[in-house]
Design a protein around this nucleic acid. Structure first.
Length: 703
DNA sequence: TAGATCACGCAC
DNA sequence: GCCGTACGTGATCTAC
C-alpha cells in the first residue's frame, strides 16, 4: 500500500500548497481512497472538483443530431468530397463531445480532485492517455504538410500545396486506474455526510455530475466560491477560477508551470492532468478559505441565504422540466413551411441571395437611394452605434410604406421562434426533459439567471409554453407575486398614496391612473390604466418623458405632464429615490432588504451619462434585488414543503415559481401551502404581500 | 478559424 | 443622454 503524500507546508508563503511540484502523487489504490476519506471527515469541510469527458457512444440519440448537423453543413457547401464530409463529421463529433462533457446528466468523470487543510488528492478514474511518445504536429498553412497528410489530386498524386494540418500526439498507455464504481462507493461517506461542508467552484456542476454514480444527489451543506466572490464584488467580469485566483492571490497564471491543460483534458498527458487536478482542488480550497474569512455581516448572511438557495437550485436543475418534443418538432415544421413561403416572397421582391437575417442587407434595401436599387425610405430610429435601425418598432412605424416590410416582420417572428425556441430547446432535450442551469452569480442585483437552456425567457405565447408539461399524473402550479417590485417601493418610501392603494387592494395601475387623471378608480378607462402602468414602470427603471412617449404613444409634452403629475401624487416615492441616490453617492453602494450590496463605481462620475445611469441603477438595484431576496427566501421555504407532499419545484422566473404537484383533489391545498410559504397574507412594513396562483397541465394553462 | 461585438428579441 | 436585469442567435468584425 502506498502512503498518502502530504504536501509540505511553506512558511510565510502564499498558501498551504505552494511547495507543490510535478511528479505528484495520484491515488491508485482503494485503501488510499478510504484513508483520504478518514482524513477529510475529521476536517469538517473540503473542496472537490471533477474532470469530465463526453462519450458520444453512450448516447445514440446524439449521433442522430450529429448526422443532421453534418447533413446541413454539407448541403451548404458547393463541392463535397468524402474527405470534406469526414472532416465535417469529425468537427461536429468533437463539438458534441465537448458539449456533453459539461452536461452533468451525460458526462463521465475521469478525475476526482479533493483538497482540505494541508492535503490534496488526485484520483484518476479513466484518464485515457499516458505520457507523450510523439508530440503533436501543427501546420499553420505556411508549410507543405508531411506525406500522408497532403491532399490527393485528381491524378492520384499528393498535392505539394501549403496547407493547414494537425497530426495528433501519440501517447503511451495510461497507468492502471481504479474504476469509477469503486472510487465513488468508497467516497460515499464524504458526499453523504450532513455535517461536512462540500465546497466547489460552481459546485452544482460537480455535485450533479457525481450524482449519476450514486443514483441520487450528494447532500448539503454545499458551498461555492463563485457565490461568495459575487457577494463580495458583483462587478467582476470573469468568475473563472484562474481569474479569481489572480485577483485574490496575485498569481497571474497559477497553472502555467505544470498544470497547463490544452483544449481538452482527455488529450493531456497523464502527469500534467494529475498536476492540474491537484491545483484545481487546492486553489478552490484556498480561495474558499480566503473568501469566507473576508466575509462580514451583512454579506455573511447574504451568502448564507444563497448557499441554501443553491441546494434548491441543484434539485431543480436535476429534476428538469418535461417538454413535448414531438409538439416542438411539429411546431418547427409549421414554422419552416411559413418561412419558406415568406422567404420566397422576400427573394422575389429583393434579389436572389438576399439574407433576411442580415441587418446590413435589410438596411441597404430599405434605406439606400432608389437609383442604388434601394427603396429610399427614411430611417426613423438609430441603433446605439448610430446606424439605421431595422428592429420591430422601426419597421412597424413604416409598415405601410412597402409590402416587403410586413414580410420582414413575419420572417423575424418565425425565425426567432424556430431558432431559439424550437431548435434551441430541442437540442437541449434529454429524455424529454430540459435541465437548465441556474446561476447565483451572473446578475448585478442578486437575481437568478438561467442558461442552457434559459427557461426564464420562454415566450408567454401558448404555442411554446403550452409544450411545457406537467409530469404524468401531475399538475403544474404557477404561483407569482402580485406587483412585488412596486410593493417594495411602497415599503421603502412609505409613500402615503401608494401605501393606501395597496392596503385597500386597489389595482396599482388603475390607482396610479386615478391619481394622474384626478378621476375615481371606477371611471378609469383601459387607456388611462395603461398610462398608469407605463408610469409605474418608469419609476423602477428611471425612465424619462421620451421613453414614456415612445412606449405609450402620447406626445412628449403630455408625457412630461404625466411624469410631473406622477411625482406630485407619489411625492414620498420621489423623495425616497432622491435619498437613495444621495446615500449611494456617499457610500458607493446601495443595499437590499437582505443586505446584498450593489456597488456603483460611476455614481460620482463627472460624465453625465455614466452618472445618471448609475443613479438609475441604484434605485433599480434596491427594488429588483429586494424582490429577488424575497423570492429566494420563499424558495428555501417552499422547497421542503413541496417535497413533503410529492411535489417538485421546477423553475423560478424572478417573481414566480413553477411547481409540479400530484394531480389529485388536494391541488387547492398545495396551492395554499405554496402561497403561504411565499408570504401571501403577510406584509412588508404594512404593505400587504399578495401571491396568486393557477394550475394546469401545461405551463400556459397554469398561467 | 476562433473569439469579440453588434443588433435584435424574448422574459420579468 | 433619456429604461432596469438577464440569455441566445446570426451576422459581421477582428486578431492570430
Amino acid at each position: 500500500m502506498k502512503t498518502l503524500e502530504r504536501p509540505r507546508r511553506t512558511s510565510g508563503g502564499r498558501g498551504l500548497f505552494t511547495s507543490f511540484h510535478p511528479g505528484s502523487h495520484y491515488v491508485s489504490t482503494i485503501d488510499e481512497v478510504r484513508a483520504l476519506v478518514d482524513v477529510v471527515i475529521t476536517q469538517g469541510s473540503f473542496a472537490f472538483d471533477v474532470e469530465t469527458v463526453g462519450v458520444l457512444s453512450h448516447h445514440p440519440d446524439l449521433t442522430e443530431q450529429v448526422d443532421q448537423q453534418v447533413k446541413t453543413h454539407v448541403e451548404a457547401l458547393t463541392s463535397t468530397s468524402d474527405a470534406i464530409t469526414d472532416r465535417a463529421r469529425e468537427n461536429k463529433e468533437q463539438a458534441m463531445t465537448k458539449t456533453i462533457a459539461l452536461d452533468p446528466k451525460r458526462n463521465e468523470v475521469i478525475w476526482v480532485g479533493i483538497a482540505t487543510n494541508g492535503y490534496s488528492w488526485a484520483i484518476p478514474v479513466g484518464h485515457p492517455c499516458g505520457e507523450v511518445l510523439v508530440p503533436e504536429e501543427v501546420g499553420n498553412g505556411s508549410t507543405i504538410p508531411p506525406t500522408g497528410h497532403r491532399k490527393i489530386l485528381k491524378s492520384g498524386d499528393e498535392s505539394l500545396a501549403k496547407a493547414r494540418y494537425h497530426i495528433p500526439a501519440v501517447f503511451a498507455d495510461p497507468p492502471a486506474q481504479l474504476s469509477r464504481a469503486e472510487v465513488f462507493e468508497a467516497l460515499k461517506p464524504i458526499f453523504f455526510d450532513h455535517s461536512l461542508v462540500k465546497v466547489g467552484h460552481n459546485v452544482k456542476f460537480d455535485a450533479r455530475t457525481i450524482a449519476k454514480y450514486y443514483g441520487e444527489l450528494p447532500v448539503g451543506p454545499l458551498h461555492d466560491t463563485m457565490l461568495v466572490q459575487h457577494a463580495l464584488d458583483e462587478n467582476i467580469s470573469s468568475f473563472r477560477l484562474t481569474s479569481l485566483i489572480s485577483t485574490n492571490f496575485g498569481e497571474h497564471n497559477p497553472y502555467s508551470k505544470h498544470g497547463k491543460v490544452g483544449a481538452n483534458i482527455s488529450t493531456t498527458p497523464f502527469s500534467i492532468a494529475c498536476n492540474y487536478v491537484h491545483l484545481d482542488a487546492r486553489w478552490t480550497w484556498m480561495l474558499y478559505q480566503k473568501l469566507i474569512r473576508g466575509l462580514t455581516n451583512p454579506l455573511r448572511q447574504v451568502v448564507e441565504q444563497d448557499v441554501r438557495v443553491l441546494e434548491v437550485l441543484m434539485d431543480m436543475e436535476d429534476i428538469g422540466m418535461q417538454v413535448d418534443s414531438k409538439g416542438l418538432a411539429s411546431l418547427g415544421e409549421e414554422l419552416d413551411s411559413k418561412m419558406t413561403d415568406v422567404h420566397s416572397e422576400i427573394t422575389a421582391i429583393t434579389y436572389p441571395g438576399f439574407n433576411p437575417d442580415s441587418v446590413k442587407d435589410k438596411r441597404l434595401f430599405l434605406f439606400s437611394a432608389k437609383r442604388d436599387g434601394g427603396l429610399g425610405l427614411k430611417p426613423n430610429k438609430e441603433t446605439e452605434k448610430g446606424q439605421a435601425s431595422v428592429d420591430h418598432d422601426s419597421l412597424r412605424a413604416m409598415e405601410h410604406k412597402h409590402p416587403i416590410i410586413p414580410l420582414f416582420l413575419n420572417w423575424a417572428e418565425y425565425k426567432k421562434m424556430k431558432s431559439t425556441y424550437v431548435d434551441g430547446l430541442l437540442e437541449k432535450t434529454n429524455k424529454g426533459r430540459l435541465h437548465p442551469n441556474f446561476h447565483l452569480h451572473r446578475t448585478s442585483t442578486g437575481r437568478l439567471s438561467s442558461s442552457d437552456p434559459n427557461l426564464q425567457n420562454v415566450p408567454r405565447d401558448s404555442s411554446i409554453r403550452g409544450l411545457f408539461k406537467a409530469d404524468d399524473n401531475s399538475l403544474l402550479i404557477v404561483a407569482d407575486y402580485d406587483q412585488i417590485e412596486l410593493r417594495i417601493m411602497a415599503m421603502f418610501s412609505k409613500d402615503e398614496n401608494m401605501m393606501e392603494i395597496f392596503t385597500k387592494g386597489i389595482d396599482i395601475h388603475t390607482g396610479a391612473a386615478s391619481l394622474l387623471f384626478d378621476k375615481p378608480v371606477a371611471e378609469i378607462t383601459k387607456d388611462e390604466r395603461q398610462l398608469g402602468k407605463s408610469a409605474n414602470f418608469l419609476t423602477a427603471y428611471g425612465g424619462g418623458a421620451s421613453k414614456l412617449s415612445a412606449t405609450s404613444g402620447v406626445t412628449l409634452t403630455k408625457a412630461r405632464e404625466i411624469i410631473n403629475q406622477y411625482y406630485e401624487q407619489f411625492d414620498g416615492l420621489s423623495l425616497w429615490k432622491h435619498k437613495v441616490v444621495m446615500q449611494a453617492k456617499k457610500d458607493g453602494y446601495v443595499t437590499t432588504i437582505s443586505g446584498r450590496r450593489r456597488r456603483l463605481p460611476d455614481i460620482n462620475s463627472n460624465k453625465d451619462d455614466l452618472r445618471s445611469r448609475a443613479e438609475r441603477q441604484a434605485v433599480n438595484a434596491i427594488v429588483q434585488g429586494s424582490a429577488s431576496d424575497i423570492c429566494k427566501k420563499a424558495m428555501i421555504k417552499v422547497h421542503p414543503k413541496v417535497r413533503s407532499f410529492g411535489g417538485k419545484l421546477l423553475v423560478q422566473v424572478h417573481d414566480e415559481l413553477v411547481v409540479n404537484v400530484p394531480d389529485n383533489d388536494r391541488v387547492d391545498y398545495y396551492s395554499g401551502i405554496i402561497k403561504e410559504e411565499m408570504g401571501h397574507g403577510k406584509d412588508l412594513n404594512n404593505v400587504p404581500i399578495v401571491v396568486s396562483s393557477q394550475s394546469g397541465y401545461t405551463w400556459s394553462e397554469a398561467k
